[in-house]
Design a protein around this nucleic acid. Structure first.
Lengths: 204, 204
DNA sequence: CGTGACACGTGAGCC
DNA sequence: TGGCTCACGTGTCAC
């Protein structure tokens, strides 16, 4: 009647061991045999779920599982610390930022406005093809506060990747030339990209 | 002569069990007895160090230790996700919230660190005087995500005004040259400005 | 008394 | 072959 090793494995740690046969009579000894089995299985299950949470695997050993979990917890704690530090720093700088900037912001804008009206800077967007995935572009637009930053953010958000960027400002105008390719697109059409960039510039 | 259970405990899990006495002769059986002892002790040690990393304690059980570690890892993963989401949201200057895909946030951080150390682009800051209020500067530093934007923000916040700016990126490096004057200062010292810029670059 | 948790020694599979 | 890991059953404390 020995149904031994019945529910102990069914896990990827267990390597399917069997127990040798007992005498069918006698020898049904310890009372906490089933309890011990349940305890072991519970511990193995816990170990498995812990295992499933840790992304980096070195070995399937019990000790290695715990070791990987240890290093992973340390990495996570470090990440949380770094991220919360960055967040606090950004929050504090953005709070302090508002008051002192507004003063010269108005001055700059006013000066730029006058210069813009007299000079009359005209926007220009030129796009030429380098190869199927890569384009070269030249953009001229009017210099206004943080407009170039917003352009960068918009292009990054839209999946454009800019390399060999060159930015020059001169008397109220910004000239940007760069190689550009789109991260997730196979092809990049000239006219389409040009219109997209013009749309970005008008919206910022 | 039975000095039994000699090196098995010495841990706060073990509850100081002793072993029953053997016959002093014979019965020294299995070959892997010591190896098994080492294995068990290593596993217990790992479990203890894992235990020491987890702040919330429910029980001193082995299973409970792993259980607590599991919930703690889940909490840490959730925190990392929330923090990185907030950080991304703040970086993209409000408005449209994208759904961040970042699973491998810690991998990216590690990769960035390694890349910085291996490549080792050397920073360079040169500042020369144009006149009493105006300087010319050249900055070379390693290209990292939104680092130029942060440089602009920092310099704007510190009251620097940049004109005739020229930015060029090339193979992981950024070169910035610009005329600069400080809005609220009468004079602008070369060495002081250079150190300030170096400080900005190191902090971003 | 029972229940739960633990370390122990051991046979066996794997590389 | 031997080293390593595993599940197993058991004795034994503590509550």
């Amino acid at each position: 009647m020995e149904f031994l090793g019945s529910a102990s494995d069914a896990s990827c740690i267990t390597r399917a061991r069997r127990r040798q046969a007992y005498d069918d009579s006698t020898e049904f000894k310890s009372k906490n045999l089933h309890a011990e089995r349940r305890r072991r299985q519970k511990l193995s299950d816990r170990l498995l779920t812990l295992r499933s949470l840790v992304p980096i695997i070195t070995n399937m050993n019990k000790a290695s599982i715990i070791e990987d979990a240890i290093t992973y917890v340390e990495v996570l704690q470090r990440d949380v610390k770094i991220l919360s530090d960055q967040l606090l720093e950004m929050e504090s700088t953005s709070e302090e930022k508002e008051i002192p900037i507004r003063i010269d912001d108005q001055i700059n804008n006013a000066a730029d406005d006058q210069e813009m009206k007299t000079n009359g800077i005209e926007e220009d967007v030129e796009v030429t093809k380098i190869n199927g995935k890569k384009l070269w572009m030249k953009i001229v637009f009017e210099k206004k506060r943080s407009r170039f930053t917003k352009l960068l953010e918009a292009m990054t958000y839209l999946g454009f990747e800019m390399t060999d960027t060159n930015v020059t400002t001169f008397k109220g105008a910004i000239l940007v030339s760069a190689s550009v390719e789109r991260t997730y697109e196979d092809t990049l059409e000239v006219q389409e990209t040009k219109e997209l960039i013009q749309q970005i510039i008008r919206s910022i």
